Computed example of a mutant assay.
Amino acid sequence: MDELITQLYPLPSSERQLKGLYLSHNLRQYSHVSKKPFVYANFIVSLDGRIAVPHEDGNGQAVPTSIANERDWRLFQELATQSDLLISSGRYLRDWAAGRAQEILRVDDPRFSDLKGWRLDHNLPPQPDIAIISSSLEFPIPEVLTKSRRKVIVFTTNNPDLERVKEIEATAGKVFVAGDSSVSGEKMVQQMHELGYHTIYSAAGPKILHLLLKGGVLDRLYLTQTNRLLGGQPFSSIVEGDLFDAPIGVNLHTLYFDSHGLDGLGQLFMSYNLANQPIPKSEMNPQ
């Protein structure tokens, strides 16, 4: 992790430490400036745009092991560390129950002991709360999620199974209706705001990114592009859903080249601000 990366944008170009790179973006300040939650998402993609390939056991899809790497994982953890609330899905909990998923923020991993300290220094609990988006409400809630008074908040659609709602609320937290046939990103984030969450990180998949974009509530997209081509079917990209009514514009915020990633093949670490979301001028050139 000691090898330097190159900042390509904003100019002037400079060499930067990987460790602490995304912590330096200081995401927690944004909601205090804008008086609304700051919502951000993150993906790692192959050069041909793939974020997932089928599991070896044929059940669902997962991040390709050929592009997953420790240097990107470090930055993923730095993004999760800064959040009050993590957005995930019922699929994530089902995968966890099946042994195909893990805790999103790994503060108990010795490699990330500094991130645990970072949260303590900022008067944050060891783990952020977790928000689950699910229309069916068909998912287990692992006990590990609810220990230490951690909250699980569920967002679903109209006319949910009331018995299932009672079961979830007796076990974990609160269920909120935030849409008719699908969850509305706008209604969901407004409810998160009313619950007191300021910094919200989507660690979920392309369908949830779609609803955040459609609702106009995503503020920043982080993207790692790896220098490997995968091919194959099915094709899964960062956004999946209906065609947007109008293309969604983004502005490049930061661009870094990691020449040491993927055994020297390299990768780009990029971040984009949504064009309709103002960012304080003081943060346009993170150091």
Rank of each mutant, 00 (worst) to 15 (best):
R149T: 12
M188Q: 00
I104E: 10
D72T: 12
Y197G: 01
P10M: 13
N273C: 00
L86F: 12
Y222I: 02
A68W: 12
P160N: 06
L209C: 01
Y92M: 14
S46F: 14
S88D: 04
V152G: 09
S34L: 08
L79R: 01
F38A: 00
A178Q: 00
Y197H: 04
S135P: 11
F139K: 06
S271T: 12
H25M: 06
D95S: 04
D95H: 07
P64C: 07
N42T: 07
S271D: 11
W96F: 05
R149N: 15
L27W: 06
Q61T: 13
G266C: 09
R74G: 13
G20L: 08
P10R: 03
P125T: 10
S182W: 14
Y197I: 02
G173K: 10
V152P: 04
D180N: 12
P206T: 05
D2F: 08
Y92T: 15
N158D: 12
G179V: 01
G249L: 12
M192F: 02
S83E: 03
Q17W: 13
S66A: 14
A203W: 07
S89E: 03
K151N: 08
N251W: 08
F155M: 03
S83I: 04
S271I: 08
T65I: 01
I67A: 13
E103D: 05
A203D: 12
D263S: 10
I130V: 13
D114S: 08
I67K: 08
S282P: 01
S136C: 04
R220Y: 01
V107I: 14
E186L: 13
D108Y: 07
P278H: 01
S13I: 11
L265Q: 15
T199R: 04
E15M: 12
R228L: 15
S24Y: 06
G196Y: 02
Y92C: 09
R16L: 14
E194K: 05
I104W: 14
P110G: 14
H122A: 11
N273T: 00
L162P: 06
D2A: 09
L137D: 07
R16S: 11
I130L: 07
P280F: 05
V175P: 10
G20V: 04
E103I: 09
A178R: 01
F269W: 05
T171H: 14
K116F: 04
